[in-house]
């Protein structure tokens, strides 16, 4: 079929970046940025996002941006946002990308502070569920049982519930999103862009390298995470009003786990336990709606 030309939003991410083949982060950054547009300021902190952003003197993003320190994505964004307001540039949104380590772990305090003050920025946690940039070490975003270089027998802790932490700050907007549902992700970024105050996006972006799966599987793994209710898509307005955006197929968790080498060691009872935990979380989420 002859495909008709269609108008597309300008791309902010450029080719030639250093992401691994099939990188979920690169997909996520691309989707977020084309929804955001390039009249914005972007903050990155050490993470794969920063690596993708390019080495000096090259930039993979066609947008003004700053590579700040690991644990301060939020106050950095807040500082820039306040400065832009002082300069009368209220119309320029500030968006921070941080990894799961930079959000769940080392950056949690500064994020909490900024969210508490309801600083005006969009915060995107690019969650690939471990410290991938340093070569796959466990973070508090790593799910239970998952292999990493520092959880060689499988992680013994549960994944921290970052969304509830953010909801507890009563910020105007918090939402989960993933690269498998591009339209949903795009809509959430656009929605966030129209709001003010601290807006938080928890973006699941599978990492073929760290999850030990084939290069082409990132979007599929993301979809599977949603369809198994391991990573439901929902929004929280004002910290208390929950909206589930997508009613999943409720597939068994194996659909998701079996795609990934980091779960290869699971015993049947482990899978059962993951299923039970997933079901519990899903029921709990539904109760909050």
């Amino acid at each position: 079929m002859v495909v008709k030309a269609q108008s597309r939003p300008a791309e902010v991410l450029r080719p030639g970046h250093a992401g691994c083949p099939g990188c979920g982060h690169a997909m996520g950054m691309r989707m977020v940025l084309r929804a955001l547009g390039n009249r914005a300021v972007v903050v990155v902190v050490p993470s794969c996002v920063a690596v993708i952003s390019g080495p000096y003197p090259y930039a993979a993003l066609n947008v003004p941006m700053f590579h700040s320190a690991f644990e301060i994505a939020a106050p950095t964004a807040a500082g820039i946002s306040q400065a832009l307001k002082i300069q009368g540039k209220d119309d320029i949104p500030v968006l921070a990308f941080a990894g799961d380590g930079g959000t769940f772990d080392i950056g949690l305090q500064s994020l909490s502070g900024a969210a508490d003050r309801n600083e005006d920025f969009i915060y995107v946690c690019m969650d690939n569920e471990a410290y991938m940039n340093t070569g796959i070490q466990v973070s508090s975003a790593t799910p239970r049982y998952a292999w990493t270089g520092t959880s060689p027998m499988g992680n013994t802790r549960r994944k921290k519930h970052i969304m509830e932490i953010m909801a507890a700050h009563r910020i105007p907007y918090a939402a989960t999103a993933c690269i498998g549902f591009a339209d949903d992700l795009t809509a959430k970024v656009k929605k966030a862009k129209e709001m003010r105050g601290t807006r938080f996006l928890h973006l699941l972006s599978p990492c073929p390298t760290g999850w030990k799966m084939e290069q082409h599987l990132s979007p599929k793994a993301a979809v599977a995470a949603v369809e198994t209710n391991i990573f439901p898509l929902y929004e929280i307005f004002g910290g208390s009003e929950y909206v589930i955006n997508y009613r999943s197929k409720g597939l068994p968790v194996e659909t998701y786990l079996s795609l990934q080498g980091r779960y290869r060691h699971l015993r049947p009872e482990d899978v059962k336990s993951i299923q039970a935990e997933t079901d519990r979380n899903w029921e709990e989420l539904k109760r909050r709606v």
């Binding site: 002859v2 495909v3 597309r8 450029r14 690169a26 691309r30």
Partner: peptide, 24 residues
């Protein structure tokens, strides 16, 4: 191909070129 753009949009390299005047 119905021009759904998924291949284009999901390309992490921004290097899948969509159809244009010169190539369908």
């Amino acid at each position: 191909c119905t021009g759904c753009d998924r291949c284009f949009l999901y390309c992490p390299e921004v290097s899948l070129l969509p159809p244009d005047e010169n190539c369908s």
